[in-house]
Design a binder for these strands. Structure first.
Lengths: 233, 233
DNA sequence: CAGTGGTCTAGACCACAGG
DNA sequence: CTGTGGTCTAGACCACTGG
């Protein structure tokens, strides 16, 4: 293996991956420092840094100043999920997207909702319930609360032709949020709408997003039976 | 805003984020090229590149040679899930980890399994079923198939004191894999083991990992009722 | 063809944390 | 204190791709 084989950071990354994978560098092992690797590979240290930093971001290496770079003990798998708009999700599967608004109301929310969104308990929020369809079949049920104080324009939007899911993405910026995945048992109402057996096991995604310190929206998406969320490792 | 405010790539990233968030640069907009931004911020183009590349990896910018850099139309949320060993998962919650092997056998697998793992239909695989406990309560059920051809050492491992989940991470490297999340209805056997009602909605994770072209292991992890997988956006 | 991002280089200084 | 990774710079060449 001559140094001239390595011309860019990706080929260096490949070689490091090969050594980890071939157990030349085992989990927990200290690997040579950037300067030494640069000398070995015949490139600038910056280039080695680029390769190793990328692997560290992927979780395969642990890097610490002075302590050096080690192969991660537990190559914690980082699964990256792309959470897209439901319409894209359906259209990407080659199916026809459909949308049906079920309910739109400005009401005082349950205390669990106002607490989670840190809004005043008596403050009205916009409540949206809607059904997303794929090829005219029920696909996912959306149950959403919108903080009108954070998104005033939402109170003038009927959400009859465009889903809140999509409208908010365009009109309501957010700085951060959290997301949770779980399994729930279908309620009678949910099974009626999704056209599935009562108590069916359904996949649910809960999201809560914030604009700095103000909550924007809280949504639960409930998918029809058999839905899977997939990604690669 | 003087140029001297920006001394490193992260402060530049923050400023770009601010402009996107403040709608100075709207979704779909073309933003200035790297050279111009470098001039504006009073830094090297490399530094601007670092900031913008990072934002592009996060999905907030679309970058194409010659076409320039645009604010992403759909800021697809990328949720990164850290898939750790179950023992760590439990211990990180401050609970006591427990492990119980239910079954260990070398058998001819169902055809669905051999097909997914691309092993010969008559080839024996190692089948492991085990229960993970948190504070002595059932936490997750592991149902795993191991390709002995890919991991010969597994046939000598009893898996009585260490879970396959953990043993494989140390002893069986993999190059890639896929993972799927879903909701399933508890079978009678599953509800007995997990000590939950039959037909309860359970959260399931299916993983299939490969070492180059050879399948290593296929596993389904079924969590007790109410389990949530959480992360931030 | 030409403008844009992608990358490499050689050197430098710095921040952090191990010993 | 000192070795390590983290970053910045100025300049250069290249790869891709839009017009």
């Amino acid at each position: 293996m001559t140094a001239s084989t390595f011309r860019n950071w990706q080929s260096i990354q490949d070689e490091v991956l090969r050594r980890i994978h071939a157990r030349e560098w085992k989990p927990g092992d200290l690997i040579p420092n950037e300067a030494d690797l640069a000398a070995e590979f015949g490139c600038a240290r910056t280039t080695v840094n680029r390769a190793l930093r990328s692997l560290a971001e992927a979780g395969l290496l642990d890097r610490r100043r002075k302590a050096g770079t080690r192969v991660a003990m537990q190559p914690i798998a980082k699964a990256t999920l792309d959470i897209a708009v439901i319409r894209s999700e359906i259209e990407d599967r080659g199916q026809k997207y459909g949308y049906h608004l079920i309910e739109r109301a400005q009401v005082v929310p349950p205390v669990l909702v106002s607490a989670a969104m840190q809004t005043d308990a008596s403050q009205h929020l916009l409540h949206i319930r809607a059904l997303h369809l794929a090829d005219d079949m029920p696909y996912a049920l959306e149950d959403r609360w919108i903080n009108i104080a954070a998104v005033p324009a939402a109170s003038d939007e009927p959400f009859a032709d465009i889903s809140a899911n999509e409208w908010l993405l365009i009109n309501a910026p957010y700085t951060h949020g959290d997301i949770a995945f779980s399994a729930i048992s279908a309620s009678q109402q949910q099974s009626d709408i999704l056209n599935c057996p009562a108590n069916a096991a359904l996949f649910a995604i809960d999201r809560l997003t914030w604009d700095s310190t103000v909550s924007v929206t809280k949504v639960r998406l409930i998918y029809g039976p058999g839905h899977q969320l997939r990604t690669v490792l």
